[in-house]
């Protein structure tokens, strides 16, 4: 196109830049991750809530309810894996709020007019969620040690636990992303975090499912939180009951499905 108009010379466009090694996709994603991490630090209330809630629940269960619950092992050892999962679940779910506020504001439209794949914004939120959860999980485990948590796991047990938790957080975060895309706004998305909060209660996280009424026991046994909790508990404290295959299938399947649905929802919302 020539710029030979007499009416007004078009302002010179910036010189085209050669893509960096690895292409623009990596560069864009890195920029979006930086953005999400900054946002995370600017919302200390979310961080504090994500930490305070599991810690309070842990103290409550260990010192108040724990004495009355018989699990065949020290209750603190029984409950800590459940608390860690609850913490991770809540932390992952708050991603729905970030995604929803991106979708409802004008920001997503701006990203869409830039030479960027807007999905990079979602990736930024997901990576932020993983980083945030890694930090909060480490802190929760630290507090657990302080209140008497005595795991017997070796390096392999810890590594396996970390890997499984990563997968769990990724899966729930992508589910949260889906919710964030379809939610009418950040407030609506916020409701989802509470739904996720309740999932661990009807699982093996706090009490053995055998002690529940029949219907709840069935739900508790076959929902994803139970095999993940059982596996983490077994790997960390050496009790039997690990279901690594079920846990991996649940988390991997959920991750795959949520990832695909998120991409589809995002495109659909974008194409209108």
């Amino acid at each position: 196109m020539t710029t030979t108009t007499a009416t007004a010379p078009a302002p010179a466009a910036a010189a085209p830049v050669r893509p960096p090694r690895g292409g623009w996709a990596l560069h864009d994603t890195a920029a979006m991750i930086g953005r999400s991490l900054r946002r995370s630090l600017r919302t200390p209330d979310t961080l504090i809530m994500g930490l305070a809630l599991p810690i309070i629940l842990m103290l409550l269960f260990v010192y108040v309810f724990g004495g009355a619950i018989s699990t065949g092992q020290a209750y603190v050892d029984f409950v800590v894996p459940g608390i860690v999962l609850l913490c991770a679940g809540y932390g992952a779910a708050t991603t729905a709020v970030s995604v929803a506020s991106d979708m409802t504001g004008g920001l997503m439209n701006r990203f869409r007019t830039l030479p960027v794949r807007p999905v990079a914004a979602l990736t930024g939120h997901v990576v932020e969620s993983v980083v945030r959860n890694a930090v909060s999980t480490a802190l929760v485990v630290g507090v657990a040690f302080a209140v008497g948590f005595r795991p017997t796991a070796g390096l392999l047990g810890w590594a396996g636990t970390a890997g499984l938790l990563l997968l769990y957080v990724l899966a729930l975060t992508w589910v949260a992303v889906c919710i964030g895309i379809v939610a009418s706004g950040p407030e609506a998305a916020n409701g989802f975090t509470f739904a996720i909060m309740f999932l661990p209660y009807v699982s093996s996280a706090f009490v053995p499912p055998e002690t529940m009424p029949r219907v709840l026991e069935v739900i508790a046994t076959y929902q994803p939180v139970t095999p993940v909790t059982d596996t983490v508990r077994a790997w960390l404290t050496g009790v039997p009951g690990a279901h690594p295959v079920a846990a991996l299938l649940w988390c991997g399947g959920l991750l795959l499905a949520a990832r695909l649905v998120a991409a589809w929802l995002f495109r659909r919302r974008a194409a209108r």
């Binding site: 953005r35 900054r38 600017r42 504001g105 004008g106 920001l107 701006r110 007019t113």
Partner: peptide, 15 residues
């Protein structure tokens, strides 16, 4: 070639 400034401000509130 373009830039769009819409009815809803497209900046990140937390940055």
């Amino acid at each position: 070639a373009i830039s769009l400034t819409g009815q809803y401000t497209a900046v990140d509130e937390l940055l």
